[in-house]
Amino acid sequence: MSSTALSFQADQETLQTLDQLASATGRDRQYHLQQALSRYLESEMRQIRDISDGIADAEAGNLTDIESVRAGWVKRADNSPD
């Protein structure tokens, strides 16, 4: 897979933390930035898919009434060890 250079601004504290991580793991900045970006994008895309799935369910009429939701939460709270 080909790659394209990407640049952005980071504050000094973030750079110091990144450098500490790189030093501790024996990996370079680029490796950690790629890992972080990949995980972030995966998480954000999962959230977008989940929202889209929820909207599709709602549009299809697959809804739960508020009283059922409330009863489930009350039951859960009643069974809580706290």
Rank of each mutant, 00 (worst) to 15 (best):
L37S: 08
A56G: 10
S38K: 01
E44V: 11
S38E: 13
T25D: 13
D65M: 10
S52A: 11
D65P: 11
E67T: 15
R29Y: 02
D57H: 06
I48K: 13
G54K: 10
G54H: 15
Y31F: 13
I48D: 12
M45T: 11
M45S: 11
R46M: 07
A36D: 14
I66C: 07
R49P: 08
E67K: 13
N62Y: 15
T25W: 03
E44T: 06
D65E: 15
E42S: 05
G26A: 11
T25S: 12
D28Y: 01
A60N: 14
V69K: 02
L37H: 06
E42Y: 07
E44N: 11
Y40W: 15
Q47G: 12
E59W: 00
R27I: 05
H32S: 01
L41R: 09
G61Q: 03
Q30I: 05
L37W: 00
E42P: 01
E59L: 07
D28G: 04
T64E: 08
A22G: 08
A60H: 03
E44S: 03
E44L: 02
T25A: 00
I55A: 09
Q20R: 02
D57Q: 00
R49G: 00
S23Q: 08
L21D: 00
D50I: 02
E67D: 15
R39S: 10
E44F: 00
Q34P: 02
D53N: 13
A58V: 01
S52Y: 02
S52P: 06
E59I: 00
E59Q: 03
D57S: 09
G61F: 08
L21P: 01
R46W: 04
N62V: 01
V69D: 10
I51S: 07
I48H: 03
I55G: 11
Q34W: 02
L63F: 01
S68D: 12
E44G: 06
G61D: 08
D65T: 03
I66T: 11
E44W: 09
L33G: 00
R46N: 12
D28S: 08
Q30A: 06
Q35K: 04
D65G: 06
R39K: 05
I55T: 09
I51D: 10
E67Q: 15
A24L: 04
E44K: 01
S43R: 00
R29D: 09
D57A: 11
D50N: 08
I51M: 08
I55N: 03
S38M: 04
E44R: 13
D53V: 04
Y40V: 01
D50H: 10
N62G: 00
I51E: 14
L63G: 04
V69S: 13
I48Q: 15
R27C: 05
H32C: 05
S43I: 02
E59H: 02
A24K: 03
R39M: 11
Y40H: 04
R49H: 14
D53R: 09
L41M: 14
S38C: 12
N62H: 10
Y31G: 06
G61H: 03
I55H: 12
S68L: 14
A36C: 02
S68V: 10
Y40G: 04
H32G: 04
R29W: 07
A24I: 01
Y31D: 11
L33P: 08
M45F: 06
L21R: 04
V69F: 14
L63T: 15
L37A: 10
